[in-house]
């Protein structure tokens, strides 16, 4: 019944079948290998994230009750400012508006809460954002946060390179009138975890970039005039002569 030709055809069919089956198996193993590689890649990312999560922290003196910013003044309108000491726009904002905002706080019009976030650690080779934020915590601990922030912005490094070292930060602290206890605090990295906490809370609050300014919780353009106007509106008064 089966001629030689039929046998050959049948054999070829079997061979094709086997080849197909082999290819299927190979594809399956390759796919498994590829998916494993992806899963491992994902786990690496997750592991780094979980490992970097801040846990314990102590807020410095002068921090608000939430422990995520330094307060200045005790006026009725709350102004939150989120700044990164490495962010160029924050320096521009600081140079333009810090004096008038500090005045609003001194006049008892606002409670200023400065959140020194460390968002730009990727923009310096030595985690300047985190170290500067932690050092500003030390400055707050010894009552010179505002003066130290002024010095930091006046000496802001360029993005992309190495920022001031801890020793440089200590030297900058001396310019702001800070002493040996501040130096020890910076060396002990006492507020590095706090810097992480400030950044995490800022992220949770939806702050994705710096500078971000909130007047009574409402996003406001980061400039002296708009902040003064927003504060005046929030206080239910017309802008005072001192801010115009």
């Amino acid at each position: 019944m089966s001629s030689r030709k039929d046998q050959n055809a049948a054999a070829r069919m079997v061979r094709d079948q086997i080849a197909k089956e082999q290819r299927r198996k190979r594809t399956m193993w390759i796919s498994i290998a590829a998916v494993s590689a992806l899963v491992i890649a994902g786990l690496i990312g997750w592991g780094i994230y979980a490992g970097a999560k801040t846990t314990e922290f102590t807020a410095p003196k002068g921090a608000n009750t939430a422990g995520n910013g330094i307060t200045n003044g005790s006026g009725p309108v709350v102004v939150d400012e989120y700044v990164d000491f490495l962010c160029p726009h924050c320096k521009t904002f600081h140079d333009e508006a810090a004096a008038s905002i500090d005045q609003l706080a001194a006049d008892g019009k606002i409670t200023l809460i400065t959140h020194p976030v460390a968002y730009l650690d990727g923009a310096s080779t030595n985690r300047y954002s985190t170290r500067a934020s932690a050092a500003s915590g030390c400055a707050a601990e010894y009552g010179k946060f505002t003066a130290f922030a002024d010095v930091l912005f006046a000496n802001q490094p360029a993005e992309g390179g190495a920022g001031p070292t801890d020793d440089d930060l200590i030297a900058l602290g001396r310019q702001a009138g800070l002493g040996d206890d501040f130096a020890q605090c910076v060396r002990d990295k006492r507020f590095v975890n706090w810097a992480g906490h400030v950044s995490e809370e800022a992220g949770r609050a939806g702050v994705t970039g710096t500078p971000t300014v909130l007047v009574n919780g409402k996003p406001t353009q980061a400039s002296a005039a708009t902040i003064a106007a927003a504060v005046a509106a929030a206080a239910g008064a017309t802008p005072s002569a001192s801010t115009s």
């Binding site: 990312g45 780094i48 968002y119 730009l120 990727g122 939806g206």
Partner: peptide, 28 residues
């Protein structure tokens, strides 16, 4: 990775914590 997590969070599609995890995994 934290910055990327914040970038994911900026889309306001998932919770902050979920965004941070997605942001950490996605680049890898």
């Amino acid at each position: 990775l934290a910055a990327n997590g914040r970038a994911v969070n900026a889309y306001q599609i998932m919770s902050y914590d979920a965004a941070m995890v997605v942001g950490a995994i996605q680049p890898f």
